Amino acid sequence: MAPGRRADGHTDGGGQFSPDNLAEALTAVCAAAGLDPAGAELLRCTNNAVFQLATAPVVVRIVASNALRHRVDKVVRVATWLAEHDVPAVRLVSGIVQPVAAGPYLATVWEAVPHGGRRPRGRDLAKLLRRLHEPPEPAFPLPAWEPLDDVRRRIGEADGLDDADLAFLRKRCDKVSDRLDALEFVLPTSLLHGDAHLGNLIPSPAGPVLCDFDSASLGPPEWDLTPLAVGVVRFGEPAGRYRELVRSYGFDVTRWEGFPVLREVRELKLITSVLPILSSRPEVRPELFRRLADVRSGDKSARWARYT
């Protein structure tokens, strides 16, 4: 999750912080950035620990998973490009060298999004995705779309999952990867958000803005249309939200022959997002094992609950 608050109030992901070192991390990052951590509120702690400062309209986002530290420089470049092209998105705080390195901690520092505005809808997501997907592509290097890379990294960082489950996930990744390699996409390659669901739009008085650029890459726009479609099936999100996305964007990924493969990729991400924090967050284990059981049994209609 990026700066601000999630529009849907959900939490879903994994990280490596514990209550013991959260305060230490925030204090170190704020000292390096010249900010005051007093009274800060923890908004979220998953792949990143996200704090709203009390002393300034600033959000601090500290990388929680060692396997994902490599993405931070890219996040800064993408955020800068979006600002230069006036795409509605969260903005980095100016005047601070970013990312902020403080001992073992790596962070980005963002302008807090003002409160207000209506809840984002499917058509809002469609309009923002069209802004991303239209040429020109950014001139700076971006990684090619490798959607299973972070899945494999999380499996490698798994803390508290037995060997049989890990072996199943690795084998599943290999099978899905082969099917993914065989796909022929119909939309032209573009800048991708990479995790384009309504929870990554933040309401503001000027309209919804995009956040969370950890998964940005160059790849097929079909991927950015997949999360909301999967959310309807797995999380029971209103189908009307996805229909709005289709009408406004002009492409229905669920009617494309490659969608079942993209759905499998998305579900692997949704399953593995908590693997690095299983020991410190035992409350997510029942939902994790339910998701694993559904995928093992081939149950494509079972509803999942958000990790909390």
Rank of each mutant, 00 (worst) to 15 (best):
L148W: 13
E146F: 02
R247T: 13
G116H: 09
R123I: 01
E137D: 15
P276I: 08
A54R: 09
P136K: 09
R61P: 07
G236S: 01
G103T: 08
V209Y: 05
A64Q: 02
A293T: 11
S279C: 07
T11Y: 12
A216F: 14
L106N: 00
A239G: 11
R130K: 15
H85P: 09
E111W: 00
E287V: 02
D195M: 10
R123M: 01
F17W: 11
R241P: 03
A158W: 11
G34I: 05
I155E: 03
F17H: 04
R303I: 05
V29S: 00
G199W: 12
E267Q: 07
R243N: 07
V75R: 09
H133L: 10
V265A: 06
S65C: 13
G236T: 06
V87G: 10
E283W: 15
A49Q: 06
P260E: 06
P114H: 04
L161A: 14
Y105T: 02
W81D: 14
A107T: 02
P138G: 10
D36C: 08
T46K: 06
Q52M: 12
I62F: 13
L92K: 07
I155H: 01
L210T: 03
S94P: 05
V72M: 15
G4D: 04
V274P: 08
A206M: 08
S280P: 00
R121H: 09
G117E: 04
C45K: 02
G194T: 10
K269Y: 00
L201K: 04
D150P: 15
G122H: 08
R71W: 01
E84L: 13
P99D: 00
V295A: 09
E267S: 02
D299M: 08
R77V: 00
A167V: 04
L43E: 12
A49W: 12
P99N: 02
A64M: 03
W304C: 07
N66I: 11
L161W: 06
R172W: 09
